[in-house]
């Protein structure tokens, strides 16, 4: 759902704030990964940057060797939290609700990749569509999803979001100026 749209008729890039999903930080050792995967209903990926997608729009992004970001539709958060609470005694882990920690902004359009390069020092051409990484954008830690060739999504810590958003707008104007 689009909350705030700065779409312009001739814009080659569009920036939108997205409504919050349910988001959890999952930490579990290798010995508990299978049980956690079963609880979640998808196989937790093991390569940093890989995203697994399961039923009911659940996704798991591997952020580190024992760290995943779990997302689901906002209303599905409670069920996930309860399922993992039930799992804890058998398989110790840490599941923390971080739905409110970050806000999400989406960048789309033919110049989306160009816009991302104004703040991100990574070689984003090598970030394949469907993958996501934690990286840095203009000094702020972000989780950067490449949803498609021309679609990026950034989860930004709430208090940093206006700063990141500001730079995206500056960059959009710059791209619109054509130089």
């Amino acid at each position: 759902m689009t909350m705030h749209d700065t779409r312009m008729p001739d814009a080659t890039v569009t920036i939108e704030d997205l409504a919050p999903d349910a988001r959890f930080s999952l930490r579990v050792g290798a010995d508990g990964r299978a049980a956690a995967s079963e609880t979640l209903g998808l196989d937790l990926p093991v390569r940093v940057g890989d995203v697994a997608r399961g039923a009911e729009e659940r996704t798991a992004l591997c952020l580190g060797p024992d760290e995943w970001l779990i997302t689901a539709p906002a209303e599905a958060g409670g069920a996930i939290a309860r399922a993992f609470a039930d799992l804890y005694d058998r398989t110790p882990h840490s599941l923390v609700d971080v739905s409110d920690r970050e806000v999400t902004v989406r960048v789309t359009g033919p110049e989306a990749l160009t816009l991302m390069t104004i703040g991100c020092p990574r070689d984003l051409a090598r970030l394949a569509p469907g993958r996501a990484v934690r990286t840095v954008f203009d000094g702020a830690t972000v989780i950067l999803w490449r949803d498609a060739e021309d679609t990026f999504r950034m989860d930004v810590w709430r208090s940093f979001a206006p700063f990141v958003r500001d730079l995206l707008e500056i960059g959009r104007a710059e791209i619109a100026a054509g130089l």
Binding site: R27, P92, H93, S94, V96, D97, V98, D100, R101, R158
Partner: peptide, 12 residues
């Protein structure tokens, strides 16, 4: 040690 840390500064 089996313990995990998560920053929740901005969650709350």
């Amino acid at each position: 040690l089996k313990v995990w840390l998560t920053s929740t500064t901005e969650q709350w």
